[in-house]
Amino acid sequence: MAERPTTNWRSGIAQEAAELAAGTLDPDCACMVELFPRELLLETDAVLDVFEAELLTLTEEDDARIFAAVERVVLALNAVNEAHDDCAFETDEREQLCAYIDRTLTERGVDVASLTVRHGLGRHELTDRWRDW
């Protein structure tokens, strides 16, 4: 399965903690725990769990159900972002989440480029209709 953005964020937290412990990072420069609090990571993972489970029931040819799954994951991520004062997902996180959705669909056999073209969208517009973050 595609690597979740939360895995990357947790790695950044661990790396920063190691640098702090080693004394190679000024504590005033540490920001990962603040950017990615435990609650945000857990809430985001819960949303991605549901998305991954739903994809197991989809077939490549079922555009309506695929778009419905994308809509649900994006709306759920909107709610997570809103719960964190609309600043949980900044530019880099947005890009990671969108790439994760695309890669996860691709791994399930969905040709995302063809799917989006069939619906008059560019490949990177898959989430735009519902995305607030």
Rank of each mutant, 00 (worst) to 15 (best):
residue 82 E to A: 10
residue 65 R to F: 01
residue 108 R to P: 00
residue 56 L to R: 14
residue 97 L to T: 01
residue 84 H to S: 04
residue 58 L to D: 04
residue 42 L to Q: 14
residue 52 E to T: 12
residue 21 A to N: 11
residue 118 R to N: 13
residue 1 M to S: 15
residue 107 E to N: 12
residue 66 I to H: 01
residue 23 G to F: 07
residue 130 W to S: 01
residue 100 Y to G: 01
residue 51 F to I: 03
residue 78 N to S: 07
residue 113 A to R: 06
residue 45 D to C: 13
residue 6 T to R: 02
residue 116 T to Y: 01
residue 17 A to P: 00
residue 119 H to I: 09
residue 127 T to I: 12
residue 106 T to A: 14
residue 17 A to V: 06
residue 17 A to G: 02
residue 81 N to F: 02
residue 122 G to T: 10
residue 75 L to M: 15
residue 9 W to C: 00
residue 130 W to N: 02
residue 96 Q to N: 11
residue 95 E to Q: 14
residue 50 V to M: 06
residue 108 R to L: 06
residue 121 L to E: 06
residue 79 A to Q: 10
residue 6 T to V: 11
residue 30 A to T: 05
residue 96 Q to P: 02
residue 108 R to Q: 13
residue 116 T to C: 10
residue 42 L to E: 15
residue 25 L to G: 03
residue 71 E to G: 01
residue 4 R to I: 04
residue 111 D to W: 09
residue 78 N to V: 07
residue 107 E to G: 08
residue 18 A to E: 14
residue 106 T to I: 06
residue 86 D to E: 13
residue 129 R to L: 13
residue 60 E to A: 15
residue 29 C to Q: 15
residue 13 I to R: 04
residue 125 E to N: 06
residue 10 R to M: 05
residue 73 V to A: 03
residue 63 D to V: 08
residue 53 A to M: 10
residue 26 D to W: 12
residue 127 T to F: 05
residue 101 I to C: 01
residue 100 Y to V: 02
residue 113 A to F: 02
residue 54 E to W: 04
residue 24 T to C: 01
residue 79 A to F: 07
residue 41 L to F: 06
residue 119 H to T: 10
residue 59 T to Q: 13
residue 77 L to W: 03
residue 46 A to S: 10
residue 28 D to A: 15
residue 68 A to R: 09
residue 39 E to V: 08
residue 30 A to Q: 02
residue 21 A to D: 15
residue 123 R to Q: 15
residue 125 E to M: 08
residue 70 V to H: 00
residue 39 E to I: 04
residue 13 I to S: 01
residue 54 E to Q: 14
residue 61 E to K: 11
residue 73 V to R: 02
residue 91 T to R: 08
residue 91 T to C: 03
residue 38 R to Y: 11
residue 98 C to M: 12
residue 43 E to T: 06
residue 73 V to F: 04
residue 84 H to W: 11
residue 86 D to Q: 11
residue 133 W to F: 15
residue 73 V to L: 07
residue 31 C to H: 09
residue 56 L to C: 12
residue 78 N to Q: 09
residue 63 D to Q: 07
residue 31 C to W: 12
residue 26 D to M: 06
residue 44 T to S: 14
residue 116 T to L: 02
residue 38 R to D: 15
residue 18 A to I: 06
residue 72 R to S: 14
residue 65 R to T: 03
residue 20 L to Q: 03
residue 5 P to N: 07
residue 71 E to T: 04
residue 25 L to Q: 10
residue 34 E to A: 14
residue 130 W to Y: 13
residue 3 E to T: 14
residue 68 A to F: 05
residue 34 E to C: 05
residue 35 L to S: 13
residue 82 E to L: 04
residue 27 P to C: 08
residue 27 P to D: 07
residue 80 V to I: 09
residue 96 Q to R: 12
residue 10 R to K: 14
residue 15 Q to T: 15
residue 40 L to A: 03
residue 31 C to P: 00
residue 57 T to R: 13
residue 15 Q to F: 06
residue 26 D to S: 05
residue 42 L to N: 11
residue 119 H to E: 09
residue 55 L to I: 09
residue 97 L to G: 00
residue 40 L to Q: 10
residue 131 R to N: 13
residue 133 W to K: 09
residue 91 T to D: 05
residue 110 V to N: 00
residue 116 T to S: 03
residue 30 A to G: 04
residue 123 R to L: 11
residue 88 A to R: 00
residue 1 M to A: 15
residue 82 E to M: 05
